[in-house]
């Protein structure tokens, strides 16, 4: 009896909070009919936004992946003073508001910023241009791969790598042949989460982008612009792309988790 009540409450809450919004996205996106939906998706500004979103993720994710691997290697295979502080600092972007993150880059590279005059002398733009968007996304998605790898590699310990070194493997060989295969599912999971976050980031990018249509709008920003102009169906059309991305992300996450569990790894 208690069991059924609890399950009912949980499912009811989730249906109200999670499923209903998803259903709303689909319904409102198709609100003006399917042809209007397709037209909204093919709109040049929307396509430009999609391209920019993908480009940003394509740059930010590999960089943060490299960082995650380096950080996890240093933190989990060695002992050094300040390790705890480093771990805490890596988590920092998670607690900082995205608006503050965007603002930091404006203060750094904006016209009045620390590098403002240097940039304008060399005719380079960071803020209100694509590089600024990439940097802001980099900051916000910074911890994800590292946070995924650190507990995983911590649990795996150092015995296998030490054995490889003792048997004569170089550092890179050890990393490639011993460590990487062990962490591949956790790594994949981290990359998926990082990519999803990179493509969906809104607050930080909103501050640095300048909202220039067709040039510095990512899909989330495009959604906001359409909404502010009362093009509700078009806004939901763009949002539906992001919602689809979210569902694909969830599916891939489960798949990776399941695979990892099958091979005896925990993610």
């Amino acid at each position: 009896m208690v069991r059924r009540l609890l399950i009912g409450t949980a499912l009811g809450f989730l249906a109200l909070f999670l499923a209903l919004p998803l259903a709303a996205v689909v319904t409102h996106a198709l609100g003006d009919g399917v042809p209007a939906y397709l037209r909204a998706l093919r709109d040049p500004d929307t396509l430009a936004a999609v391209r920019l979103t993908l480009l940003t993720a394509a740059i930010a994710v590999p960089l943060n992946l490299t960082f995650g691997l380096a950080a996890a290697w240093a933190i989990t295979k060695f002992a050094f003073p300040g390790k705890q502080l480093l771990v805490a600092l890596i988590d920092l972007p998670l607690t900082v508001s995205p608006v503050i993150c965007g603002m930091a880059f404006v203060l750094l590279f904006g016209a009045q910023g620390w590098f403002g005059s240097w940039l304008s002398d060399h005719d380079l733009k960071v803020v209100f241009a694509v590089p600024g968007i990439v940097l802001a996304t980099l900051f916000v998605t910074f911890p994800f791969v590292a946070r995924e790898l650190i507990p995983l590699m911590q649990e795996q310990g150092t015995e296998e790598e030490e054995a490889a070194v003792v048997l004569g493997a170089s550092g890179w060989q050890t990393f490639r042949r011993v460590t990487l295969p062990n962490i591949k599912w956790g790594l994949l999971y981290g990359v998926i989460v990082c990519s999803a976050r990179a493509m969906g980031e809104f607050g930080a990018v909103s501050v640095v982008s300048g909202h220039i249509r067709g040039v510095t709008n990512t899909v989330p920003l495009h959604v906001e612009i359409l909404y502010n102009e009362y093009h509700l169906a078009a806004a939901f059309a763009a949002a539906s792309l992001l919602a689809l991305l979210a569902l694909v992300t969830l599916a891939m996450q489960s798949l990776v988790e399941w695979q990892g569990r099958r091979r005896g790894e925990s993610t």
């Binding site: 989730l14 999670l18 209903l20 969906g200 989330p220 509700l232 939901f236 949002a239 992001l242 996450q253």
Partner: peptide, 21 residues
């Protein structure tokens, strides 16, 4: 798997949808 939806869903979409609802 679905519980992670707010994590995976871009905040703009969440905001837009909740407002409309």
């Amino acid at each position: 798997a679905f519980v992670d939806l707010p994590f995976a869903l871009p905040t703009a979409v969440a905001g837009l949808t909740l407002t409309t609802l």
